[in-house]
Write a protein that binds this DNA or RNA. Structure first.
Lengths: 336, 336
DNA sequence: CTGAAAGCGCTAACAG
DNA sequence: CTGTTAGCGCTTTCAG
């Protein structure tokens, strides 16, 4: 039916005004529901607008009002299963409040992260949510962002003096350690991940402080299954073998399960294992993993709310929120 | 250090021009590297621009040029592990070519999907990538989109007459069936998922045609572990028990493994199982799953390229691409 | 309450 | 090659 394929140009305010027989200004005011307009005329404009299928051009509005109604979200790696849930929550929340979201994935590269933030600023975002790659190296980027637009750090902290919404990692590890003690395990080992990431570093630090474990029982690597397997194998060379292996995420925990299985040790009878994140994998592995469920929805909700509040009033006091996580007990620590 | 917190207003072209001692137009031309400008002046402008830290306001540029350099991407559900990879690939590709990406998650709701598309159009996106919720119910939305901006359907098809980049599901299922035949299994059952999704429907249809399996051996539900378990249990009530259970994704396959385990049947000796998607879960389950690896990177790459091509020339012939998937053989079909 | 007009920052047409 | 000017579509003074 279309004469020339795609793209008949969109209906403009001018056309709506003409259709309604009023000036552009009046049409604009009517659609903005700003009050100061004769109800009858407002009605005419509304009808005309619907008849023509008018939709405001947000680019023009953004230029005029210096407000784009779009915010940026920078994540370190979307394929890390923790982030899609957070992103989904944030995206939904913001959209319900009329804010669009430009997503940027930094691929764990600090340099790329910095460039992404610059580009988002060029696009005129009204605010920025960022989960940084590196607690140290990303500081500069966060500072740059905060001088330009309201910015909220999510899950990972780089600059302590700016808005942050994350999880109480220390408390989470404390719950795990407590649970293991309660079930009679006292010699604990820890498989830690990338200390460049604040959340991971906090877990390591918390474990060290809470258990006073010796260096031999704390291995630090990355977030992969392979690393969990390697680290666990190393623990198994020590005597006595630890009674439980606490892991910084579910993947490393699965790796630990594999290593224990190979070595002919039973879980949880001989050695208990715990994960972190409560991904699908935790419920599927055998035995299913005791793990920590982070309050992903809350995280997204509060991050979005904090950003909105800061956009509304850039002068508000800096918020630093630590949400409680929750241990989920499954077969890897307690017999069925 | 900042006087008033955030937001000193950005450097504008006017200021760069003043600093360089040229007109705004010349400054603009110099920065656009459009040639027609005295090299010496161009140099002056460049210096001034760097000195002031000028960055073009893309909102203004978008309004003027009627081109936003931003495209929209609508996904049905970001927590489906298939999509983050595709999104990441698309985002990276587009960004390298200077295009930003607004992400929208439809939460599997057709109504929301339609609204998202409208909003993306309001934001002046230059093009749209969409993976639809429903092969039938989403048609209207895709048609609406295509009349306004270049649009490419990704992975899931709704309107056959428009651009589409997906996977050859039939060939994928054929590979699985062939592999099972080659390993001596002939009585096959299928755990299918949501026929509202074109990709899932194609898998079901392919299985039916390729095997001529009776209705009893084809169960259709959703994508969950629970559904895989239920469906497999049902198959186990039939005699003879199927020699292999082909599943529409890895999660349902894990459910099938659980059901078989419960029933005391060995995998792969008594019954073979296959998954689909090659998610992490497939390599972790025990036994690890034979599954199908979809060409996620290719998918993202070609989708992005197709969109770019259509934006550059809206008149190009409609592309409908089917990429080949690849079977990954693991322990669930072949003894170690 | 309504309309005319300015202008957000940029680029492109048009003179010079 | 350079500068002046118009204008993208919208909102918001400023007059009336």
């Amino acid at each position: 039916m279309n004469v020339k394929g795609a793209g008949r140009s969109r209906v403009t305010m001018r056309e709506v005004a003409a259709e309604a027989g009023v000036s552009i200004a009046t049409a604009s005011r009517a659609l903005a529901e700003s009050g100061r307009v004769n109800p009858e005329m407002a009605q005419r404009v509304l009808l005309a607008s619907e008849k023509l299928g008018y939709r405001a051009n947000r680019v023009a509005r953004a230029l005029r009002q210096q407000v784009s109604q779009v915010v940026g979200l920078v994540v370190p790696d979307l394929t890390n299963p923790f982030f899609p849930k957070v992103v989904q929550e944030i995206e939904g929340r913001l959209r319900r409040e009329g804010l669009g979201l430009i997503l940027a994935d930094a691929r764990d590269e600090v340099a790329e992260e910095a460039e992404l933030v610059r580009e988002l600023l060029d696009h005129g975002v009204d605010g920025l949510l960022i989960s940084v790659c590196d607690r140290i190296a990303s500081r500069h980027t966060v500072r740059m962002a905060t001088t330009q637009v309201p910015t909220v750090q999510v899950d990972r902290l780089a600059v302590a003096s700016q808005h942050f919404v994350g999880v109480d990692q220390r408390d989470a590890i404390a719950q795990v350690v407590q649970h293991l003690h309660d079930t009679g395990r006292s010699r604990l080992a820890f498989v830690g991940s990338s200390p460049k990431i604040s959340a991971a570093a906090e877990r390591i630090e918390a474990f060290r402080e809470l258990t006073g474990a010796p260096a031999k029982l704390i291995e630090i690597g990355d977030f992969s299954v392979a690393w969990g397997r390697d680290a666990a194998r190393r623990f198994l060379t020590h005597r006595p073998v630890p009674e439980a292996i606490v892991c910084a995420n579910d993947l490393t925990a699965v790796g630990a399960l594999q290593a224990l299985h190979e070595a002919g040790l039973r879980v949880p009878e001989d050695v208990a294992v715990t994960g972190f994140d409560d991904t699908l994998i935790a419920s599927i592995s055998s035995p299913p993993l005791t793990t920590v469920r982070q309050p992903v929805q809350e995280l997204g909700r509060i991050a979005a709310a904090t950003l909105r509040a800061t956009i509304a009033d850039p002068g508000i006091a800096v918020r630093s929120v630590r949400l409680p996580a929750e241990i989920v007990v499954r077969g890897s620590t307690s017999a069925r």
